[in-house]
């Protein structure tokens, strides 16, 4: 979706409505700030967490885990795609395995992962890899199958090696599928990461954003808790709209490949 003045205005109006309802509800029902803190105290708590650098550190930590997970997951998915391209049987077996694992939420694997990898950074990365690998593999395979037979003819006519064809023709032709896969991968890994961090607690000197939420609840810092939720929402939609929006505008929108 494009950020137009109109969509920005709509966004601002929705925010304003939420704030009015929130504050109105607090006043009318006389709710304790421990249950529903005031918007101002949430904002000031957010400001403190931002100013102290705490929340930024934790975000950075969370992103380093996601980056690692997506990197490993994407690498494995490409590897699996290449293996699948060599043998039909391998591709079919992988398709079946993917159809079993694809719907499995990463967090459901947590007990097993703890059993095998212990409680630590490694376990979270494994969960993220799981969240990234299957949707990406499924999309890459669908993309690979969708590469036009005419492109294969052109590639053969130009005497391209399989690698050259994969890089110069198959990869760009598959970009819509790659992006769709990455979108799902991001959404799943972001959710899995926060859940895992909340369950594990701090796995390093400073935890991630999930750990931030967890500690606010433990300290009954409700304003901080809502500040954390705000950050999770904002970061999630920022990545989806700004990062993916930008990548899509500069690739598939520009090429007219967005369906």
């Amino acid at each position: 979706m494009k950020t137009t003045p109109r969509s920005f205005l709509r966004f601002a109006l929705v925010l304003l409505a939420i704030v009015i309802l929130w504050e109105g509800g607090r006043a009318v029902f006389n709710v304790s700030p421990l249950v529903m803190p005031g918007v101002l105290s949430v904002l000031s708590s957010l400001g403190t967490a931002l100013a102290s650098g705490e929340i930024l550190h934790q975000l950075a930590f969370s992103f380093s885990l996601i980056g690692m997970g997506i990197g490993i997951g994407a690498g494995l998915a490409v590897l699996a795609l290449i293996i699948g391209a060599q043998s039909r049987v391998a591709a079919e077996v992988m398709g079946t395995v993917a159809s079993l694992f694809h719907p499995l939420p990463g967090i459901a694997l947590l007990p097993v992962v703890i059993l095998w990898f212990g409680v630590g950074k490694m376990a979270i990365v494994v969960i993220i890899v799981h969240s990234v690998f299957w949707p990406l593999l499924t999309n890459l395979q669908a993309g690979y199958r969708s590469v036009s037979p005419t492109y294969h003819l052109v590639g053969r006519n130009l005497e391209m090696s399989p690698t050259s064809f994969a890089v110069r023709i198959a990869a760009p032709a598959t970009v819509p599928y790659i992006l769709a896969g990455l979108r799902i991968a991001w959404a799943r890994s972001w959710r899995a990461l926060i859940s895992a961090e909340m369950i594990f607690g701090a796995v390093a000197a400073h935890g991630g954003i999930g750990w931030f939420l967890h500690t606010r609840r433990v300290f009954m810092d409700t304003a901080g808790l809502f500040a954390g939720i705000l950050v999770v929402m904002l970061v999630g939609s920022l990545v989806e709209r700004v990062v993916f929006g930008f990548v899509e505008r500069s690739t598939i929108d520009r090429w007219g490949m967005n369906g």
Partner: peptide, 19 residues
């Protein structure tokens, strides 16, 4: 084997690359 010195223009409409 095909070679680029024997170049084919296809009837198919999708022979050029959208990207």
């Amino acid at each position: 084997a095909p070679d680029a010195n024997r170049f084919m223009i296809f009837q198919e409409q999708d022979q050029i690359f959208p990207w």
